[in-house]
Nucleic acid binder design. Sequence first.
DNA 1: ATGGTGGCACCGCCA
Length: 274
Amino acid sequence: MRFRLATWNINSVRLRLDLVERFVASYGPDVLCLQEIKCIDDSFPELQLRTLGFDHVAVCGQKGYHGVATLSRLPFTQLERRDICGRGHARHLSVALGETANGGNPIVLHNVYVPSGGDIPDPVLNPKFRHKLDFLDAMKTWFGGMPDKRTNRMVMVGDLNVAPLPTDVWSHKQLLKVVSHTPEEVERLEAVQASHDWVDVMRRHVPADEKLYTWWSYRNRDWRASNRGRRLDHIWATPALDGATVDMRVIDETRDWPRPSDHVPVIADFVIDD
DNA sequence: ATGGTGGCACCGCCA
């Protein structure tokens, strides 16, 4: 099985439907995971997206905020829309890809939107930061409780809202106290990663000493010139799928398209036996 | 040290 997987925090799918169409026409993803769709299920532009060739659609929407959706040319079975730390937010959706008649192992694809965490990196002063830490802890407990860590075939993509490595931000030193790069969040994200031996797929393709960003704030006049980016969006895979990606690309040209999202898509090309 | 932008719901919240 060979497929191109893309993840993109679209920051309102209805407002940027034209950008999704342009991205799909240019890069031809077989599976597209969107975050921050910012609409309820009934308002999701499913028919327009189906005309792009995505016959399989799963949505976990919410009024005005958050929300994730997974679109696919390959058949899938929707598995779960998990309320990861019990606040009723639409931040997770999982599907099983490529279930074969000959009993092949399906690939479970998790689409996740971790809470941003507000401005103040203090869980006592800032309930949104508390929520972010709790959410990451809940992910750790959940994945840690799953059996068969070596044989499970899972992929997790999405906006994890944490830039873990010093090279995942434009200035490690200046961002140590900025939500998304504080030691407290990074430790917790690393604990999630360790809980199921997740592989950081993007860093399999770009060495850890090279800068790598997927998000540039709207509050910069010229995002490319200032280049104050962060790697908030991620693609992870379980050890059974380590080495299954033959290419990975960050599509930063979309940041220059009209009325862009502040996040850009990340693509990974998978080649998987059976 | 500060303020800079953007979307959605609705006159503030969230990012």
